[in-house]
């Protein structure tokens, strides 16, 4: 089975794929398992959030449990979820600008193991290039010109996917970045209604463009609010319902990562994960997957394993962002 192409599709195909979607104001609340069934093996899945922020962990947890294979995954910056996607076999191709748990924990030994042994691919683009590729996808155009990445090795390793042009107005040399239109986008937000109107606090990362670019959006949300509540503050709605195909209520749906204003990263848990994978990348990540991803009966069971003490500590820190 082949991987999804991440080069621009024809405009006709892009329009046709959108035309057949039910874009009406309809209810689309479902379970994590039901939403996971929307994703097929070999697809291109884009992940919202960045590094340890608003990572749609609950949805990735469901995808790993559902045994999806050979997904091409793209994200602005990849943290621990990349280790888990590689090690579970869900993805063997990750497109991103930076891949490791976080600078304070050093290089991901799991990423090193899989890439250095040629088991999985880490396709590197600059951070702005990732963003401009999603934006081109969101705009319905096949590429975006940029002045970044020129002259570098980062440009050279993706030479088959980029083109250079001389600007017809100014004669400047420009790099053309191919649009990214993911098959599925996974995005976690603080609140959404049953139709998929998503309100998003704090850092937005690339999520708005990803939602607009994708063929399908699966939204997980800390809580589902009423459509009336959305309509009282429509200026706070950042992702429009017509781009969304599934809404799943997933409290602590980014844990052990952060969800702005709700909880910060679960530092002890993440420290222990870093330590275990440093000792033995393969066994460490395998034990982690068994304990936290394969064995729990349900999402609540997973959260119990994270533990009330850490949950409270992360929540206290998370809510403190509004303190002066």
């Amino acid at each position: 089975m082949g991987h999804a192409s991440t080069l621009p599709k024809t405009y006709q195909k892009l329009r046709d794929e959108t035309a057949v979607r039910d874009r009406s104001l309809r209810e689309k609340v479902m379970t994590l398992e039901e939403a996971a069934s929307f994703v097929s093996d070999g697809e291109h899945v884009a992940i919202g959030g960045c590094t340890m922020s608003r990572t749609p962990i609950a949805m990735l947890w469901a995808l790993i449990r559902s045994g999806r294979r050979k997904l091409t995954v793209s994200r602005s910056i990849v943290s621990t979820e990349g280790d888990l996607l590689y090690a579970s076999g869900v993805s063997d191709h990750i497109i991103t600008s930076w891949f490791s748990q976080g600078i304070v924990w050093g290089i991901s030994q799991v990423m090193r193991h899989f890439t250095e042994n040629h088991v999985a691919k880490f396709e590197e683009w600059s951070h702005m290039s990732m963003g401009l590729r999603y934006r081109a996808g969101a705009m319905g155009i096949p590429f975006m010109p940029t002045r970044s990445m020129l002259g570098s090795g980062v440009r050279d390793v993706v030479t088959e996917s980029v083109k250079e042009m001389i600007c017809p107005y100014t004669d400047d040399k420009l790099l053309l970045l191919p649009a990214l239109n993911p098959d599925t986008a996974l995005i976690h937000v603080q609140r959404a209604d049953k139709y998929g109107n998503a309100q998003l606090d704090g850092l937005q990362f690339m999520d708005l463009d990803i939602a607009m670019a994708a063929k399908r959006v699966i939204l997980t949300t800390e809580r589902i609010i009423s459509n009336d509540q959305i309509r009282r503050t429509p200026d706070q709605t950042k992702i429009p319902f017509l781009t969304v195909d599934a809404v799943v209520e997933a409290p602590f749906g980014a844990a052990p990562h952060e969800c702005y204003g709700n909880y910060e990263p679960f530092f002890s848990h993440l420290g222990a994960y870093a330590e275990a994978t440093r000792r033995d990348p393969v066994a460490g990540v395998e034990e982690y997957l068994n304990r936290y991803y394969r064995e729990p009966k349900n999402w609540a069971d997973y959260l119990s394993l994270l533990g009330v003490t850490e949950l409270l500590d992360a929540s206290r820190r998370g809510r403190s962002i509004v303190n002066d």
């Binding site: 590094t51 990362f205 910060e264």
Partner: peptide
């Protein structure tokens, strides 16, 4: 902050904007 992408980075900020747009300020 553990990276430049967590809420700790936003304390007393004048503005929060998408990643692509903050990088475009460079361009």
């Amino acid at each position: 902050p553990p990276s430049t992408n967590e809420q700790r980075c936003t304390r007393k900020a004048n503005m929060i904007l998408p990643i692509t747009d903050v990088l475009l300020l460079l361009q």
